[in-house]
């Protein structure tokens, strides 16, 4: 893989120089405009930010983005499912708690929520907060605040989707389960959720992709994920197009991977004769 990358990068550099592939770039410091060629070898040069070369610097950023996304997703899925189910239960108390949760977390901007988790809550919590601010290393402070924020934010969205999914199955399924003597808890676990989740795979996938994009917001509290690193690489190497092109490409590739996995999951869990599943 390595040698192939080297060869193709080298070939492209030579070709681009030979074709006078040039564009006007303005330097964001006080220097005057430069004429530069697309220089993809910049990815192999060492990054001033770390011991790695620039490409690896970005890839590690991608890794941090993905890590935050995954942990937040676990939190979001569990809490979101619980709240979504709560909103479909009979009675008025539980559904309204669910509704309040959703309204609260959907009507405050993500950035504000993040700042609340990172600044306000550690300040306000008596013992745990002080420990958090003093003993936990900054990167993990950012990570924990990010996970809590993104987890609960995304949970509100998942709750709405789960609620819609269960609703689409209709009262008929619930009635059929209850009529057999199953308790409500059993009806949800054995009948409703297995089908609802299958129906929801596409919407949940797009929610996960949103979550990946939202991890970029964590850069405002210093979490060094991909978007931030793209910008930082652009600044340090002056290779702005290459840096952002790489960042965009990496996000796009991640998108495609997630969607392919989701399609695989859909096929794996499909029911014969149902929703176009296996026969």
């Amino acid at each position: 893989m390595g040698p192939l990358l080297h060869i193709s990068v080298g070939a492209f550099t030579v070709w681009s120089q030979a074709n006078h592939f040039s564009l006007l770039t303005s330097h964001f410091s006080s220097k005057t405009a430069l004429i530069a060629a697309f220089d993809f070898s910049v990815f192999l040069r060492p990054s001033p930010e770390s011991a790695l070369n620039n490409l690896s610097y970005l890839l590690v950023g991608l890794g941090w983005s993905l890590l935050l996304a995954l942990t937040s997703w676990v939190v979001a899925f569990v809490i979101g499912s619980a709240i979504g189910v709560m909103r479909t239960l009979p009675g008025r108390f539980l559904p309204s708690i669910g509704a309040c949760y959703v309204e609260l977390f959907r009507n405050i901007p993500l950035l504000v929520q993040l700042f609340i988790w990172f600044f306000v809550i550690p300040d306000m919590t008596p013992i745990l907060g002080d420990w958090f601010k003093r003993q936990v290393p900054p990167i993990w402070q950012e990570f924990i605040a990010g996970t809590a924020c993104l987890g609960l934010f995304t949970a509100a969205r998942i709750a709405e989707q789960v609620r819609a999914g269960i609703g689409s199955l209709g009262a008929g399924q619930i009635g059929a389960g209850l009529a057999l003597g199953l308790k409500r808890r059993q009806v949800y676990l054995l009948v409703l959720l297995p089908v609802a989740y299958r129906i929801l795979i596409p919407t949940l996938t797009s929610e996960f992709l949103n979550l990946i994009k939202n991890t970029a917001v964590a850069s405002t509290i210093g979490y060094v994920e991909l978007a931030q690193r793209s910008a930082s690489m652009a600044e340090t190497t002056s290779r702005v197009y290459e840096a952002f092109a790489a960042g965009t490409l990496l996000y796009a590739v991640l998108n495609l991977l997630v969607m392919a996995l989701a399609r695989g999951l859909e096929r794996f869990t499909s029911l014969p004769g149902f929703l176009g599943g296996r026969r």
């Binding site: 992709l209 994009k213 917001v217 652009a234 965009t248």
Partner: peptide, 24 residues
């Protein structure tokens, strides 16, 4: 393209690249 990248990155991109370019 615009739906697969974060808004944060679009903002960085415009701020560091496109707008200075056009203004330049």
């Amino acid at each position: 393209i615009f739906r697969s990248i974060p808004l944060v990155m679009v903002l960085f991109w415009f701020h560091l690249v496109l707008i200075p370019l056009i203004v330049g």
